[in-house]
Amino acid sequence: MSALERNQEDRSDRQQQNTEQNSEAVLQTEDLTVYYGKFAALRGVFMKIFKNKITAFVGPSGCGKSTLLRCFNRLNDLIDGCRVEGKVIYRNKNLYSKKIDPVEVRRRIGMVFQKPNPFPKSIYENIAYGARINGYKGDLDELVERSLQQAALWDEVKDKLKDNGLSLSGGQQQRLCIARAVALKPDVVLMDEPCSSLDPVSTGKIEDLIHQLKQNYTIIIVTHNMQQAVRVSDLTAFFNAEEGEKGNRFGYLVEYDKTEKIFENPQEEATREYVGGRFG
């Protein structure tokens, strides 16, 4: 246990150095541990997320990568029995301090989910809804058009903005959800395996889109697909799962570095094995 901790501290030092970039850190975690009920699902994560970069989280299932993602917009609050220790620093504030309003956090850190989940409302309303509750003062029509353009969906839906969002194809729905997220002008967009329920053509479109969004946004993407991580991300964090003393599995951060480094010359044996097995 203590060996593991020391090990992790070593790693976090190294990661800090390796990933020292010119750009500033938007999000930073300090010894972040997440519990579901009694057991930790994710232990001792130290990491920085850099501005206008795409960071990919990879690792086997149960390694806590989605759990970590949901810490950044406090969506874990919705899960009964979920408890977070440690810090997530955003704009010099700890998101998990008692004073923080999670609603405010989610207005600045947007999210795209594994399965497209448009609201059962019109395409237009899907985007206008978030803007309205956030007190948007500008021209809603313009915002809807711009957001749909940013999500590369405008040409396909401009003639049917009144149609129900659920009438679109899966890939279109996911781009609608991306448009919904970027319409709020968030600092960060979290993407939880956004292509896992899509066909290859739609996946390609979403990946192109992610590249374009990089200019304006900081993106964190959780993915099972190593090729996808290589194609889209600047930085990659590899998580692994380990068996705890009581047979419960928990995840931890193994290695975090530039994407090409992780895939071509990883420092850790576990990374090499996982990436090699999946990628080679």
Partner: peptide, 15 residues
């Protein structure tokens, strides 16, 4: 209702 709907709404900053 699918729980996605709820999380989707919270994620755009709804109370």
């Amino acid at each position: 209702l699918p729980s996605d709907l709820r999380t989707g709404s919270y994620a755009v900053g709804s109370t």
